[in-house]
Computed example of a mutant assay.
Amino acid sequence: MGFAVQLCYENVNGSCVKAPYSPGSRLVLYTVFGCGALLAMLGNLLVMIAILHFKQLHSPTNFLIASLACADFLVGVTVMPFSMVRSVESCWYFGRSFCTFHTCCDVAFCYSSLFHLCFISIDRYMAVTDPLVYPTKFTVSVSGLCISISWVLPLVYSGAVFFTGAYDDGLEELSIVNQNWVLIDFLSFFIPTLVMIILYSNIFLVARQQAKRLKILRERKAAKTLSITVITFMISWIPYSIDSLIDAFMGFITPAYIYEICCWCAYYNSAINPLIYALFYPWFRKAIKIVLSGQIFKNDSASMNLFSGQM
């Protein structure tokens, strides 16, 4: 005797089929996805507070990192919690209009992360290859321009998705129908990623040839840490990008659970960046201790030295 098929909406024609996850599986999935969302929110919030509060961290590069953290924080707030329910329940319970808004947030904030990482790679390239004139080239104003571009372009692209309704049909099927949009998505991911690969490859080639002076060693260490961030981003997003491209041109052959795995690999990137900073940046660990211990509320906390005892 077969099991009756459960639909997300019993009274709606063409309603999606609800996946029959067991209670234990649902608990595990909610725990894994919920922890990712909390880490994306709290971890990136700590990054923003640390960089904006401590005067010693006020630099063009760190402002870019704080803005990147803001994009990842918004992924954790506006995207991951609702995607968590969709992934576990295999149904969208938040209405059609919010579905479109959710996708726009997904597109805007994820591409904002990508653009920030691209500009950070340009910043590190300039710092390592031309360290003497770098401070005069990559100023706070230039950093502000990069941050503005990293927000405006993804928001405009996201707005185009919203107003054209290009993703509407695809959202109901948990995949993107419009092949032109998928191709634009893939190129928007591939081109900046290729730029980052080329820049970081040149960074390490040039760094090897340079004299091992103190300042250059510091720049090389920063470049190495940020390159780990970029590599993590690529590993997280490549499965989703390739899967979307293949699916759109091969008739949506990917099973729903594979699509969800690819989605959450990408989402989890927003939660991983703060962990990378905590592992490789002593100043970030010290800043976290100051924030969590409440010392941040002292009058002179903004002027604390976070680099004492570091190279």
Rank of each mutant, 00 (worst) to 15 (best):
F189M: 07
N62D: 00
S143F: 08
M1V: 15
A302M: 14
M250Y: 10
S90Y: 13
D106L: 07
I120C: 11
I272R: 07
I197E: 03
F252V: 12
L74A: 13
S241M: 06
L39K: 06
L42H: 13
F63A: 11
F115S: 07
W181S: 00
R213V: 09
S22W: 12
L205I: 12
V140Y: 15
S15P: 07
N269D: 02
F252Y: 15
R218I: 10
F109G: 08
Q56T: 03
A166C: 06
K221H: 04
V206A: 09
G76W: 10
A66K: 02
C262Q: 01
V32A: 02
V12W: 03
M84N: 14
Y240I: 08
G144I: 05
V133W: 08
A266H: 00
H116V: 02
W237K: 11
P239S: 01
Y240R: 10
G251V: 06
S236D: 11
F3L: 12
V142G: 01
F163M: 13
E10Q: 08
A207F: 05
D247T: 04
V133A: 10
S293H: 14
Q56W: 02
V28A: 11
L214I: 12
Y134V: 01
K286Y: 12
A69K: 13
G170D: 00
T225S: 04
W151E: 00
N178K: 13
S83L: 08
V291S: 11
M126H: 00
Y9S: 10
S97K: 14
V133P: 05
V152K: 15
L68T: 08
A127D: 04
L45K: 04
F162K: 09
M126N: 12
R208P: 01
M311N: 12
S201G: 11
P23H: 08
F284Y: 09
I296Y: 15
K137H: 08
A4M: 11
Y157R: 14
P255C: 01
P239Y: 07
N178M: 02
Y30D: 06
F249D: 09
P255H: 03
F249K: 09
S227Q: 10
L45D: 01
P274L: 00
I65T: 07
A71R: 06
L39G: 00
D168A: 11
N299A: 08
I191R: 05
T164V: 05
I272G: 00
R26T: 14
G294A: 05
Y281G: 01
A207Y: 13
S158R: 12
G36A: 06
L68E: 05
H53Y: 02
V195D: 03
F162E: 14
V107N: 10
L117Y: 09
S113G: 03
S293L: 13
D123L: 04
N11G: 00
V230H: 07
H58V: 02
I288C: 06
N299E: 15
L171I: 13
C118V: 12
C110F: 14
Y134K: 02
I65G: 01
T225H: 07
I242P: 06
V5S: 07
T103R: 09
L187R: 03
V152T: 14
L114W: 11
L187N: 02
F280P: 06
F63C: 04
H102V: 00
Q6S: 12
P255S: 03
L183C: 01
V79Q: 13
H58N: 02
S270Q: 01
D106M: 13
A248P: 03
F233Q: 10
S303M: 14
F119V: 03
